[in-house]
Structure formats: C-alpha cells, structure tokens
Design a protein around this nucleic acid. Structure first.
Length: 114
DNA sequence: ATTTTGACCGTGC
DNA sequence: CGCACGGCCAAAA
C-alpha cells in the first residue's frame, strides 16, 4: 500500500469534513473528536497544508470563537460569511450556538444546552 | 533518536 | 482588549 497521511491526520480531515455547513469547530474540538484531546496545535499544523479544497478547513476556528489562522484570513472570513456566519471583528457571533462538537448522543453530554 | 516548528490554548498581567 | 509565557502535540528537519 502506498504511504499516506497518518491515522491522526486522516481522522482530523474526516472530522473536519463532518462539520455541518454554517457551523464551526475549534482546533481543540477537532482534536478531541479525532481522539487526541490536547492536540489542538497539531491539528493546526495539519490544517495548514489543506491542499484539498473540498475539505471545509475554513470551519475550523480558534478557541473562544476567534477566527484563528488561515493561509488567507480574508478568504476564510468570506467563506464562512457565505454560509451565514457573521462576525464582530475577528470574533464569530453566536459562537455558542454555531459551535459544533459532534452533536451525537455520545458527545452531547459534554456541552451544556444553550 | 533528538530538536525544531507551528492556521493552538489557558492563564496572568 | 492586547501581549507574553509555558504547556501541548504530531510532523518535519
């Protein structure tokens, strides 16, 4: 078999792909969903490559609802805006509601209801 | 095998 | 609100 991305990297991409349109997830959230709590920084490293445009890497933001990094921040903002996400400077509005932490029966308990 | 690097995160000032 | 610091982790050097 050909050498490819590590298991971790692939899981990160899979999680990123699962983020619904118009919703966002922090690097830390993705790390948790990928099975490596605390690996937020490592997630950022992987996202930095993000060659494949079909991967919604613009939905991965920084903690607290901050826009976070991106190769082209202006574009990241535009892409999110195109999905209905609004901002207040670098801060995403309605972060509490838009945040997606994998709303599944298993993970729902981790977050408190709005 | 060891060191360096980064689209991070929480805390403190 | 902004900035520095230390801690974290996986990938690349």
């Amino acid at each position: 078999m050909l050498a490819g991305p590590t298991t971790f990297a692939r899981r990160v991409v899979a999680v990123t792909r699962s983020i619904p349109r118009g919703r966002v997830a922090t690097y830390g959230d993705v790390a948790v969903l990928a099975g490596r709590p605390g690996a937020a920084r490592a997630v950022g490293n992987i996202m930095a490559h993000c060659e494949d445009p079909t991967i919604p890497c613009h939905r991965v933001i920084a903690a607290g609802g901050d826009l976070g990094g991106y190769t082209d921040l202006v574009r990241k903002k535009q892409q999110l805006a195109a999905e209905g996400v609004t901002f207040s400077g670098r801060r995403i509005r309605q972060f509490r509601e838009l945040r997606w932490t994998g709303d599944t029966p298993a993970t729902l308990r981790r977050r408190r209801p709005v």
